[in-house]
Design a protein around this nucleic acid. Sequence first.
DNA 1: GGGGCCGGTCAGGAATTTCCCGATTTGTGC
DNA 2: GCACAAATCGGGAAATTCCTGACCGGCCCC
Lengths: 217, 217
Amino acid sequence: MSVHIVIADDHKLMREGLSSLLGQQGDIVVIGQANNGREAVQLTERLDPDVVVMDVSMPDLNGIDATRHIISRRPRTKVIALSMHSDRQFVAEMFRAGASGYLLKDSAFEELASAIRTVAKNETYIAPKISGFSVEDYSNTNAGSELSAFPRLSHREREVLQMIAEGKGTKEIAADLHLSAKTVETHRQHLMDKLDMYSVAELTKFAIREGLTTLDH
Amino acid sequence: MSVHIVIADDHKLMREGLSSLLGQQGDIVVIGQANNGREAVQLTERLDPDVVVMDVSMPDLNGIDATRHIISRRPRTKVIALSMHSDRQFVAEMFRAGASGYLLKDSAFEELASAIRTVAKNETYIAPKISGFSVEDYSNTNAGSELSAFPRLSHREREVLQMIAEGKGTKEIAADLHLSAKTVETHRQHLMDKLDMYSVAELTKFAIREGLTTLDH
DNA sequence: GGGGCCGGTCAGGAATTTCCCGATTTGTGC
DNA sequence: GCACAAATCGGGAAATTCCTGACCGGCCCC
């Protein structure tokens, strides 16, 4: 029985490369590709894959929030995070969001294949390079040992922050999220209050540091 | 006759993915992989490939400097830059360093294969998404005074851009520069028009890339 | 099960900023 | 002198932000 995969990454060459590699495995079938988090969520709904291979930083909707959406709607789906960063921050957030695996982009392909088979069996996988922690350190929401020095932002707030940092206007964000512009304003206000930042420029830099967006447009 | 390739990218999964894809092409053979710029230079010396597929941002020695080394020692070698960024800045630097091609990481694989064949024939290749310029615009131009190949911003405009990216408001900037707020507005407007960016978020990212401000608060 | 709190949603209206026109002045190059 | 870009500023309409208040549904806690 083969494992059905959806790949989410904002770089087409990466998607196609992974697809090509995975396609050579007998027991793994790539059934879809998404180029951002939002597409990943939609594709997962439509195609019901066993495993989603998810880039952490993507435009529109990042891998962390996308994972949260996916897990909340289809808890059986396994998500493997694929990241450039070995920061505990990212690792922690991904596992809290419900990921089952985490590995780095400079892993060998064998490791990815192995991770896929592992999570498909309901086990978790962490890249050796970043272990030294156990999943338990992350999975349980112990608010006490917050890694970030920043006030905790709600999911919605992070989502809005990301879109602001991508250059979108209030109305545009509202439309994308099917919200009133007023609600988006409120979220922005809360963001500014919580972070003690009162300009889009500062919010953007913060979002970049947090990996919610990247420097390229 | 087949084209011999060296791939340089700091992400092993990307290298392996590209390798897998390229290996399926009859006329292309991947003869080596490097995980940073320094290795790319060494490998090129040893293996004498026809084409090097070079990631622009790599640790240790970046793609631009690596390209410069390679071209200066083996001018016959062709380098194709592979980048996340569509900034003209990077494009310009790569071509000045001696690259023969430039394409984005979210290109389709077909485009990469096509680019490889193109540069192997001594022609240059620029990804459609970033063309609209010709290589001549970059290859031997001044490079004297300005660092960036972007539409020239006036001194005042850069000054205003920097302050915007630092999170300052229009009135604050006006006060600092002893100007009317209206004048600052005009500069902002000109910035947006010239750069084709219509949000503070985008301007901020641009300013960071240009070194006008930094990520830290 | 009542009370408190938080996240998420939205509105009204005032305050502020942006946006789109135009205008003047100065310097630079031809 | 003439053309042109840079720099400066204004008027007024349009859009956005800011502030305050409000409602609902969970959730936790005693």
